[in-house]
């Protein structure tokens, strides 16, 4: 009896009509999804940064910042590891040995090409150019630099690049950290290139022609049209 009365009471209760919440729910879900995506990206970057930091022994617990282009990462640390002298560049090979077309400064042939460190070293008088295929996204070159080092993102004809303006440590596959000086690393098509020379960066406009000791910053600097981001003079 009382159950029937309770059911009857339900019909007479003053319950407001249900407001439509579907729109608000949909908007909140979309917002949360965007938020989660941003968090996931931030987390991925964080994990990546930590992975990079822990891959560079000396920088454990001291990662300050990092720079990355495809195939290469520069970690800013508070202490450089003990550096070893440069190791041999690898086995001398013919110009046509690499499975990709080498980029050549002004189309000039190097003194010698070497296969080593997961890529190809091109030795010129006063500079070393290292080229490797980076299309798979794997990081081949790791570098550690002190916070006071001049490291910055630049771009080389629209491709991301990193300029390192002073002494730092470079880790190539399987080897100990070595000392390196002024370096420009940049992407070009499926390749990543690393140019190391005893150079000074100059923001002065240059118009000299290329010579063995001088690199003109023009579109012809590399035969395959890579241009350094700034004027480079071989010291």
């Amino acid at each position: 009896m009382i159950e029937l009365e309770l059911r009857d009471l339900a019909v007479h209760l003053d319950v407001p009509p249900a407001p439509p919440v579907a729109g608000a729910v949909r908007a909140r879900i979309a917002r949360a999804r965007r938020h989660r995506r941003v968090l996931a990206i931030a987390l991925a970057i964080g994990i990546f940064a930590l992975a990079v930091a822990f891959a560079v022994p000396s920088s454990r617990a001291s990662l300050l910042r990092f720079f990355h282009v495809r195939g290469a990462t520069v970690t800013i640390v508070d202490k450089l590891p003990r550096l070893t002298p440069r190791a041999p560049l690898g086995a001398p090979v013919r110009m046509d040995a690499p499975p990709f077309r080498l980029l050549l400064p002004n189309g000039r042939r190097p003194e010698q090409v070497y296969a080593g460190d997961g890529g190809y070293w091109l030795r010129y008088r006063g500079l070393l150019l290292f080229e490797f295929e980076s299309g798979d996204g794997a990081t081949l070159i790791k570098k550690a630099a002190l916070g006071r080092t001049d490291v910055e993102y630049v771009d080389v004809r629209g491709e991301p690049a990193i300029w390192i303006g002073s002494r730092h440590a470079v880790y190539l596959p399987g080897g100990p950290p070595r000392a390196a000086g002024h370096v420009l690393i940049w992407q070009h098509g499926p390749l990543t290139l690393r140019l190391e020379a005893s150079v000074v960066a100059s923001r002065r406009s240059q118009s000299h022609g290329a010579s063995a000791d001088h690199l003109e910053p023009s579109t012809s600097w590399l035969s395959a049209s890579a241009t350094p981001p700034r004027n480079l003079e071989v010291a």
């Binding site: 319950v15 579907a22 729910v25 949909r26």
Partner: peptide, 15 residues
């Protein structure tokens, strides 16, 4: 699909 479920259940959920 989820929105259809919300629309279908919002009266019961609110009540």
């Amino acid at each position: 699909a989820f929105e259809a479920l919300v629309v279908s259940y919002q009266p019961l959920a609110f009540r």
